Amino acid sequence: MRRMGDIQGTFRVKRIYEQPEIDDGFRVLVDRLWPRGVPKESAAVDLWLKDVAPSTELRKEFNHRPERFADFSARYRLELDSNPAVETLLVLAARHSRVTLLYAARNTEENNARVLLDYLLGRPPG
């Protein structure tokens, strides 16, 4: 299995509302809730990994408010430190040349998928 430092080009993030593309590779929805208005049949999701998403409590506290993002990011990273679902993503990275982390949030920069990507790539918070 690859280590975190070896997966730089493997992961990327994308809104689930964007059109699926062939170069998305293995598509993983990383939200705890299924996105509104997206039929499961046409979502082209290979895996819905709810367990890697922020806890319900953390998600509700953040509520996609930019002023809460720094705290959300730090707390979500702490959750990821003890989350076995992270290992699932690392195994997928070892098996696929591209893994696309799908999310539903409108904010394309301050969301759980971006925090997760930075975490997987070993990038510092911020």
Rank of each mutant, 00 (worst) to 15 (best):
G5D: 11
D6F: 08
K14W: 09
R15I: 15
I16F: 12
Y17M: 10
Q19I: 03
E21Y: 12
I22N: 10
G25M: 05
G25H: 01
F26K: 03
F26Q: 08
R27H: 05
L29E: 07
D31G: 07
D31Q: 05
L33A: 06
L33H: 04
P35F: 09
P35N: 12
G37D: 05
P39N: 12
S42Y: 09
V45W: 12
D46S: 12
D46A: 08
D46M: 03
D51H: 02
D51R: 04
V52D: 03
P54S: 00
P54D: 02
P54W: 00
P54L: 00
E61L: 13
F62W: 01
F62P: 08
F69N: 15
F72G: 09
S73A: 08
A74M: 13
E79I: 02
L80H: 10
L80F: 06
D81P: 04
D81V: 12
S82T: 15
N83Q: 04
P84N: 03
P84Y: 15
P84A: 15
A85Q: 03
A85K: 02
E87L: 14
T88M: 11
L89D: 14
L90I: 10
A93R: 11
A94Y: 10
R98I: 05
V99K: 10
L101R: 00
Y103E: 07
A104K: 09
R106C: 09
R106Y: 14
E109Y: 15
N112T: 03
A113K: 00
R114L: 07
L116R: 01
L116E: 00
Y119M: 03
L121T: 03
L121S: 02
G122F: 13
P124A: 13
P124R: 09
G126L: 13
